[in-house]
Design a protein around this nucleic acid. Structure first.
Lengths: 349, 349
DNA sequence: ATGAAAGCGCTAACAT
DNA sequence: ATGTTAGCGCTTTCAT
């Protein structure tokens, strides 16, 4: 591999001068600058970032830790992250933890070894082991770089970009009530997580505020994943006793629910009303619409990066907790139409 | 940040000894090993990869260049890539080119600066500019690391993992013919790309082999993207003259086609037959099934990494071109049922 | 305006 | 079994 010395020799200058040309720093006569640049271009010379990192005691790398590449949420967040990284000329080290706390731990060690400037992190969902969680907290403290949490947080004074799950589900419940539904249920996320509990609480609070009875058997305890939501929905339908309206707690929950619903040829917006948390782009595109609360996934990634760079520049600034706004998109499935009319969801298997 | 020297001092040994403990190399007495390890653990010390890279003249980083994070294909490929990277203890530098050749160029420069060991690359689709393409070829040559192409290739002697688009579409056409369709059309990909041309050719060849007439107006020239496929499908339907059966050239093309089809409440598998290239997981999960040719996305990423590591270990091995197998999944939409029976696709808007 | 020299954190060759 | 030393490719004083 060609080095700065090779360039220097060929251009007939010192390494220092080449460095100055590379970094547009110090004084270089226009003449030598041109001569040096010509040699750089000739070999398409790129200085070693490792060597730079070593002498400058800092890198141009940001770590990105994500639990799952199949979920649109993280992909779109990643889109936002790459946008900002491009602008800032930063490289991203990508880690997929597959929702596995051990991989999360490995990822953080690796990122520490790489001396990343900062980390954007969406925690693995299942941190059942109190000890493992403490371990992650330790690692974050020892990383020597700011960490911004996305979606899921830890009780640490870090920046974070989160979603008002309570407010969103409260609002979803309200909309269902306004649309005339009284018997309302919810497929929850993992309620051992704050983001799961919050959403359930939003539902309970709205029901209370509107003085509607809560039927405990209409609360289906899920885990934010497709399979569990599918199972719960299937049992719900097969029991014969199901609510007039249901709330699904995130995109994967919605998918599991839709699967069970379609399998039984149950018509959304007629036989059962529904509002889901999260927008599912592809379903929307093909015209498979359902009422939902949407949050800005790409924007979440952008915001997280902004917080991160702010923290990198001002390490002692007060931690910020950004709550991303949501929008309500009513597409009709929040109601139950009386007549058997044409809908988007009559899927007679 | 704590360094090897700090560890050495605290453990009362030389840096060399610490290095030996870190790398399980050379001879260290059990006693000192323990003492040193204790200090390492105490500080959760991670050696600087930059410093290592510098002295060892090699990194543990693999570059991943992908044109689009919204497409399931790339996300699942990424899943495969991360799996292998984990096993091999390699880090991934992730670059999203957004189908933009300029970003592609920037990404390759950056990866060169990072001295990556190798690169997995899915080229940006639109390389209209002959000069830009030459530029990318130059950069690949100057990268000093093997590059494995995914899906799209360049006329270079590189390893690649590709898809038998010709065979897949040939097979799709055959299935449509066997199902009784005669007037068959196709929404193509970008036929200025080999992967686009191949798929069209597979269609033409099958039609020819089965001695069916090709109606040129049933060939819809797309670009592998949703919007264009939607436009083309819309015009196709609105013209009143559309084929009995249609082939969509990739997942995004399928999405655009489905959108137009659903908007018009046209029933797939009754009013029009269809086979799509690529499996769309989420549609399948919710029970929105259509006949398709599936390729193994995750496996593509795994295979690419295997080729890459093989090349890293044996730099002068002969370039391999792996053609991923495909499977045919007939779900019913390859036929046109005579009666208005219940199907998965009656979407009466 | 240019260069010489030191040094970043590590590893490896060479003592001892 | 352990340590000393040199040096990887850069940037940054400090001279000139």
């Amino acid at each position: 591999m060609i080095t700065i010395k090779d360039i220097a020799v060929e251009a007939g200058v010192s390494k220092t001068t080449v460095s100055r040309v590379l970094n547009h720093s110090g004084k270089v006569s226009e003449n030598t600058r041109k001569r040096v640049q010509k040699v750089i271009d000739k070999y398409d010379y790129q200085p070693s970032e490792s060597a730079r990192a070593l002498i400058q005691q800092t890198t141009k790398m940001i770590g990105v830790v994500i639990p799952n590449v199949y979920n649109d949420f993280y992909n779109e967040v990643l889109q936002g992250i790459t946008q900002v990284a491009d602008e800032k000329n930063m490289s991203l080290i990508f880690c997929n933890t597959n929702e596995n706390p051990n991989k999360e731990e490995k990822a953080l060690s690796m990122l520490k070894g790489q001396r990343v400037r900062g980390v954007i992190m969406a925690l693995a969902s299942d941190n059942p082991d109190r000890e493992l969680r403490t371990r992650v907290e330790e690692q974050i403290a020892e990383l020597n770089a700011p960490v911004v949490f996305i979606d899921r947080t830890l009780p640490l004074p870090n920046d974070s970009v989160i979603f008002d799950g309570f407010g969103a589900v409260y609002r979803a419940t309200e909309e269902l009530i306004k649309a005339g539904n009284k018997k309302i249920g919810i497929i929850t996320g993992d309620i051992s997580l704050k983001i799961g509990k919050d959403r359930l609480d939003g539902f309970l609070q709205a029901m209370k505020d509107y003085k509607l009875p809560i039927n405990k058997s209409y609360i289906y305890y899920g885990n934010f994943l497709v399979d569990r939501a599918y199972e719960l929905s299937s049992k719900m339908y097969d029991s014969g006793d199901y609510p007039e309206a249901i709330i699904t707690s995130n995109n994967d929950t919605t998918i599991g629910f839709l699967r069970a619903t379609r399998e039984r040829s149950i018509e959304l917006g007629r036989e059962i009303a529904m509002i889901g948390i999260d927008h599912i782009t592809i379903l929307d595109t093909i015209g498979y619409k359902y009422s939902h609360i949407a949050r800005d996934f790409v924007g979440t990634g952008i915001k997280a990066m902004q917080l991160l760079f702010n923290k990198i520049e001002k390490p002692y600034s007060k931690p910020k907790k950004v709550i991303m706004p949501f929008t309500v998109n009513l597409m009709g499935t929040e109601k139950r139409r009386k007549s058997k009319m044409q809908t988007l969801f009559n899927s007679k298997l």
